[in-house]
Nucleic acid binder design. Sequence first.
DNA 1: ACATAAGCGAGACGGTACGTCTCGTCTTCTG
DNA 2: CAGAAGACGAGACGTACCGTCTCGCTTATGT
Lengths: 193, 193, 193, 193
Amino acid sequence: MTIAEGDVPVRGGRPRDPACDAAILRAALDVFAEAGYAGVSIEGVAARAGVGKATIYRRYANKAQLMADAVRCGVYVDDHLPDTGNLRADLMAMMQPLVDRMRSEDGKLLTAFAIERFRDAELAEEFDRAVIGHKRDHLRHLVRAAIQRGDLPADADVDLIAEAAPAYIWHHALYGLPIADNLLERILDLVLP
Amino acid sequence: MTIAEGDVPVRGGRPRDPACDAAILRAALDVFAEAGYAGVSIEGVAARAGVGKATIYRRYANKAQLMADAVRCGVYVDDHLPDTGNLRADLMAMMQPLVDRMRSEDGKLLTAFAIERFRDAELAEEFDRAVIGHKRDHLRHLVRAAIQRGDLPADADVDLIAEAAPAYIWHHALYGLPIADNLLERILDLVLP
Amino acid sequence: MTIAEGDVPVRGGRPRDPACDAAILRAALDVFAEAGYAGVSIEGVAARAGVGKATIYRRYANKAQLMADAVRCGVYVDDHLPDTGNLRADLMAMMQPLVDRMRSEDGKLLTAFAIERFRDAELAEEFDRAVIGHKRDHLRHLVRAAIQRGDLPADADVDLIAEAAPAYIWHHALYGLPIADNLLERILDLVLP
Amino acid sequence: MTIAEGDVPVRGGRPRDPACDAAILRAALDVFAEAGYAGVSIEGVAARAGVGKATIYRRYANKAQLMADAVRCGVYVDDHLPDTGNLRADLMAMMQPLVDRMRSEDGKLLTAFAIERFRDAELAEEFDRAVIGHKRDHLRHLVRAAIQRGDLPADADVDLIAEAAPAYIWHHALYGLPIADNLLERILDLVLP
DNA sequence: ACATAAGCGAGACGGTACGTCTCGTCTTCTG
DNA sequence: CAGAAGACGAGACGTACCGTCTCGCTTATGT
């Protein structure tokens, strides 16, 4: 499940070359890391990947979709959506990988991409659809389930609790505040009873 | 301090037409509001401003500089730093104006400016020094004072409480989440006891 | 052999569209005839031809090359280089078409182009390389062969005899002297024994 | 009669600075010599002359007029019309000065002037009336006189013989062919018996 | 003597065109 | 049929000049 549109195993004909998939994503991330989003061009990615332009356009409708998928596959891949019945543990499991990645070398890449995401409505939409959306939904689901269980009061603010970790983490990243190892724990200490 | 390069009034030659300065910035902001950053083109701005392209390039080296200045000029900031001894009231007084503007037409502009701030280290530094910095400091000061007064427990997480409102507000703005009228109250309900 | 650079059919890739070749040359000549060389702009030609600018620049490096080829293909095409062993007949066969064209409506166009050729070193070079050069060479070759055969004395002035027709014809055209039907015959009567 | 519009010493105001006239023409000719007609720009000439653009536009409406005047001022003509009864000697005496100047530094200038002459009907008429016209007439007169004397056969082609030297010389100049020292002699050898 | 009027260097102004680049689509050929 | 190669129409990029228009100054003349 690497390619956004899922695999379309059309019948007949030569199958898509998985080596191309990889080469394209690899090249896209490399170029982005070197030159920023504005410096990415489909032609450049194609050349670097040793691939024809059509081979990219056969997979992605445009640059935004390509980059959204590249970032997802390259640095965002933990698609684990835990649901153990322990809200705090589930939130930790979901968000700690993001904190870790933000503290690593990938942090800068991720932040740079996020910023581009804000500038380009198309890119934002693609990325939210492909990567962020169902995580956000799951966060809300976890909080609501906790209320149902009685672990949170009935009038708890579902949205704010669910968004707490992303909001604080990105706020730190964007404003260059240090992201401590225990940042996530402190956030949850603050917003969970 | 409107135009990026400062005023270089060199002597000799016809002076720059201030009406052009205004028309360019006005047009840049208009186009931006309609089409987003990616939708801004120098040619479009020039046409809309009724100005030659050279008249823009005489002032700005490229789109990035133009938009940085446009958005900077389109953003004003008020500077009220209340300190009444009531933490919740002070935080409300400080942050509600930001919420209000975010909900107004200016919201897009403010958000755009923030994004540019993230991209441009120089802009970031200048802006933090001139506008953000002492607000952030004051927020921390208010929280610490509340602890001192015993209004907050001694082990309260100063940084997270102080940053709560900005973090949530910008998070909502950047991710396009609706900013409700009572957003600030809900945030304070969550992070203050 | 319409396009200057010869056909470079490299393998792979979509081949150049011959319809574009034609549309471009047609449009270039039309615009030139209407507005003169100075009035020709690549953008105008592209628009008139219903073609992207890049499609022209893919074929010609600049306006000079385009116009050189356009004139060659449009009004200069008789690439017949006769060599029958009869000097006078060969010279007649080579040059009479030019005289005829000079006497026709195309004459003005041709003259206008020649003048531009003189003003623009780049255009001159392009045109000589693509159109004039091998004709000039062939003229010299014919005269030398005639000397070899003994049809001309051994000390005949190869260059002047070879250039006689072009020199007189262009002289008449440029100075607005009437170009008589039998001009070429009179020239050859004068310079051939 | 140096400046196109003649001198209009209207009353009042500061008079035109003759030093500017000179500097402009000087610079125009210099730039022309270095970069050719197409390489001349008013801005370049102004800069080289140390003069504002308006100071040029006050004198000439556009580049064509500037260059026409520049080249006109750079060209002088001598007016010796010999008639000794020796056709060959007279033709030599009339045309050798032109050959000599064509071989000198002035050659480019003369050629440039001729080209401008072809483009500008007004300039052409003026120049033919003032300079070329009676020379052309005199050439014909000399040839006809030679026929009368029996030095040329009765059916000699007056026009072609009379135009031979100008035609060949200008042909060489315009096409960049080398103009040899003995070019004129060779021409006369060819067209005179 | 001093207002009037124009010339002057400098350079901004609204434009046009340049030649380059990338976009996303479309053909053709090769494996 | 997938893939590489690359042509295609479209249109923005940043640059260079065009010819016009202020600026603040200088330089003669005509009262």
